[in-house]
Design a protein around this nucleic acid. Structure first.
Lengths: 120, 120
DNA sequence: TCAACCAGTTTACTTTTAGTAACCACATAT
DNA sequence: ATATGTGGTTACTAAAAGTAAACTGGTTGA
């Protein structure tokens, strides 16, 4: 009988969804890459230049090293972040935002502004 | 000796963080309200007008009623969404985006575009 | 030599989230 | 009477996410 947002009702009155929002919908997909705890903050901290691992971990006061490493690996895999071995013996590593990572910054900035302007 | 992003090194070479990004930083706070699984999608589905509970649950193909209710309650509490009892006996309920909820749409749109333009 | 740094890894948990499947009470249509 | 609809709730399980703290194996500086 009627339709509303992809839901159709047939002649017998049974309801069917024509375009259910299955998992790989763009908003959920985006949230998976940027939404994990600390991911946004990590990217944000890298926006002004490469940062060394322990410095990053310290900045993210609340996060354990394990979390920071884990998130960094995920973000490396997603291509948001690049790991660079700066020196071998004294081991020194920096993490740097990639060009692709930078494309997410405007979005994070909007989120940041949104949280700041509305008291959340 | 040097400082970098709020990390200072004292005369003895010990490192200290001056402004660690503790949990309630704007990006993390924003992610807490908008980042849960399905929350973004729910808000997005409500953008064109009120939607009834079961319709919404159907649209979110992968989500169980329990999840949808849970997320809706959280979003009600956050003031993003309003529950409206349309009719009592036949019980009918709609969920509607609030003015505050609408302020998050531009952000979701950017996330959506970002996910769509970069193959994620 | 000792303490502190580097960049992690590992362990041993606890907490949170996600999810299934069945069930409720009531209403409407066949 | 039976199936289907409404808007949920309950009970339970599985998986993910997160924690603190110890530990590696090296380096550096006092």
């Amino acid at each position: 009988m009627g339709t509303s947002l992809g839901i159709t009702t047939d002649e017998q009155g049974r309801k069917h969804v024509s375009e259910p929002c299955l998992e790989p919908c763009p908003i959920e997909r985006g949230m998976r890459v940027l939404g994990g705890k600390w991911k946004g903050s990590i990217l944000w901290h890298l926006k002004d230049g490469p940062v060394r691992f322990n410095d990053l971990a310290r900045q993210l006061g609340g996060a354990s090293k394990k979390m920071v490493v884990q998130r960094l690996r995920e973000m490396e895999d997603a291509g948001l972040v690049k790991r660079e071995m700066v020196s071998d013996r004294p081991v020194a590593v920096t993490y740097e935002i990639t060009e692709f990572g930078k494309t997410a910054l405007s979005f994070l900035e909007e989120l940041k502004n949104w949280s700041e302007t509305h008291q959340i």
